[in-house]
């Protein structure tokens, strides 16, 4: 009896263990949390076209992690949402795969026409804390900052595009874990200002930046300034399966996937 019980348990354990992976070329990726959603979408679509021949393994970190992992040969490709730096290790090849941007948004009752980079920096760093100090603001009173938590790619984009490396977002800013929650917080608070992805601006007033209205279309046309590039980083020119994937990313099918939420490269 006892033996049969134990045998049953072992049998279940063996069934639960993952089946051994088949031999196929695996592309490993690591790096930027902002690039990860796009990279995993592109990877999924690519795996469908090359069923059984290619697999992906994606680890998130920061852009720096992606760059240094690929420089040390720990992954096939690094993902980076920042441009190449002079301090990066030599011999790396950056391939641009898409552009990404964010909108500055206020409550619908607070229709600010336009903001310069300086105004954005002053507001989000906490240098200006009252709407009456903001040129063109439709109201007065305290400014409520709504931002994303540190793990967010949108936060990373905002920091890179608008704030730069040296300026920090004020520590009194209230953090939300998703674009939708930022949208909701701004929509329900007349004093609020925050940043959201292009897709989450419904019900909010989007502030145009440097005179250009914030929309995915303006970003695609190249006019809107609040954008940055997504890169795949390889050691030397990409080879084998990785090169084929990067080439596929330039195809019409991949560009359609990118265009859903990001800006394809011309």
């Amino acid at each position: 009896m006892r033996i049969r019980f134990i045998a049953l348990c072992t049998g279940l354990l063996i069934l639960a263990a993952p089946a051994a992976a088949q031999a196929k070329s695996t592309i490993t990726l690591s790096g930027s949390t902002s690039v990860t959603p796009l990279a995993s979408k592109l990877a999924k679509a690519y795996v469908k076209t090359k069923r059984g021949k290619v697999g992906f393994k994606i680890l998130q970190g920061g852009s720096d992690i992606g760059v240094s992992d690929v420089a040390r040969g720990r992954v096939t490709l690094g993902m980076s949402s920042r441009d190449p730096l002079p301090t990066d290790p030599g011999g790396l090849r950056f391939s641009r795969i898409a552009r990404d941007g964010v909108c500055i948004a206020t409550n619908a009752g607070n229709g600010i026409a336009d903001m310069s980079q300086d105004t954005v920096q002053a507001i989000f760093s906490g240098r200006i804390r009252n709407w009456s100090d903001v040129p063109g603001a439709g109201k007065s009173g305290a400014i409520d900052l709504v931002v994303r938590n540190p793990a967010s790619g949108t936060q990373d984009a905002f920091q890179n595009i608008f704030m730069g490396q040296n300026l920090r977002v004020s520590s009194s800013a209230s953090q939300r874990p998703s674009n939708g929650r930022v949208q909701q917080a701004i929509a329900s608070n007349p004093n609020a200002i925050g940043y959201v992805d292009f897709a989450f601006t419904k019900g909010l007033h989007t502030v145009s930046y440097k005179g250009i209205a914030c929309s995915l279309r303006n970003a695609k046309s190249g006019q809107y300034g609040g954008v940055r590039s997504f890169w795949l980083v390889s050691r030397g020119a990409p080879t084998g399966a990785a090169a084929a994937w990067i080439k596929w990313i330039k195809s019409a099918k991949a560009r359609r996937i990118i265009a859903q939420n990001w800006v394809p490269i011309k």
Partner: peptide, 19 residues
């Protein structure tokens, strides 16, 4: 912000090792 809320808010950063 209590501890448990901090964990759910930041769960997308779990794969960054020290975080």
């Amino acid at each position: 912000r209590p501890l448990a809320a901090t964990i759910v808010d930041n769960a997308d950063g779990l794969s960054v090792e020290p975080f």
